[in-house]
Design a protein around this nucleic acid. Structure first.
Length: 254
DNA sequence: AAAGTATGCAACCGCGTCCAG
DNA sequence: GCTGGACGCGGTTGCATACTT
């Protein structure tokens, strides 16, 4: 016995929304606000699933939704947060006013990932012939983990680049918007007695001109430690992980 | 110009979480 | 503490459009 369906699938319209449907939904919410999404379609005579109405409202109809190209700063924020917390799009979206999680997810999967990492890595003969093929679950976990490591590696390589994140203190506050709160989302290895590097980094909290490369390096090292602790223990310890770093351009092992 | 392929994005699906009863 | 309904989220699908051959 499974879960009861949220709506009568047979009598529900699917696919793109018409202007009339949009107008009906918008007018109702403007008048009454959002409430019970499941009951809403019946109230206003829409042959839509309540979840579909919610999605349409959140992603397109609600005020102040920003569509169109992402700025470089938004790219940077998405990239840094993806490294820090992975594919938690709703949290990432919360840091980008006007952007929706769906928008960011699509943007990442279709464009930003390619822009930063290059085209998808083809399976190498080494991987396919010498390593046990991971099951689909570990494959999914690994690809996300691997992307994050590769992105971190790119930032590492860019340490001497004036425009890189690590040499751009103005962006630091954007890296850890969740830090500085008591409910940090990123587990760290710090014990209570150890000095914590996991402190909020805020732009202007120190003399930006005095930020030497070495301190940036320390920051980066600390973040790399955090990164590994953020991964599933299973992902790190699994012998089936097949972790080989490869250059996306050349395909050579790093 | 037509067919095939790639890309981008809106929308759907299923599952985990939350919370009232 | 348990249960069921609703919500919220991330992954996936499907379609329209753009691009290539």
């Amino acid at each position: 016995m499974g879960r009861a369906p949220c709506c009568d699938k047979a009598n529900v319209k699917k696919g793109p929304w018409s202007q009339e449907e949009d107008a009906t939904l918008k007018a109702y919410i403007k008048e009454n606000g959002t409430g019970n999404w499941i009951a809403l379609p019946q109230k206003i005579g829409l042959k839509r699933c309540g979840k579909s109405c919610r999605l349409r409202w959140l992603n397109y109809l609600r005020p102040n939704i920003k569509h169109g190209d992402f700025s470089d700063e938004e790219d940077q924020i998405i990239c840094n947060l993806y490294i820090s917390i992975g594919s938690r799009w709703s949290i990432i979206a919360a840091q980008l006013p006007g952007r929706t999680d769906n928008d960011i997810k699509n943007y990442w999967n279709t464009r930003l990932k390619k822009k930063l990492l290059g085209p998808p890595l083809k399976e190498t003969s080494r991987f396919s012939s010498q390593r046990p093929k991971p099951n689909s679950q570990t494959l999914t976990l690994n690809s996300t983990a691997l992307e994050r490591i590769q992105l971190h590696n790119l930032q590492f390589q860019g340490i001497n680049n004036t425009f890189s994140f690590y040499n751009n203190p103005a962006l630091w506050s954007k890296l850890h918007p969740l830090r500085g709160t008591n409910d940090s989302l990123i587990p760290t290895k710090n014990t209570e007695n150890e000095p914590s590097h996991n402190q909020p980094v805020t732009a202007g909290s120190k003399d930006q001109d005095s930020c030497e490369t070495s301190s940036n390096f320390n920051l980066m090292q600390a973040e790399l430690n955090d990164l590994f602790y953020a991964f599933d223990e299973e992902a790190i310890s699994s012998s089936s992980w097949g972790l080989v770093f490869q250059d996306y351009e050349t395909g050579y092992d790093l």
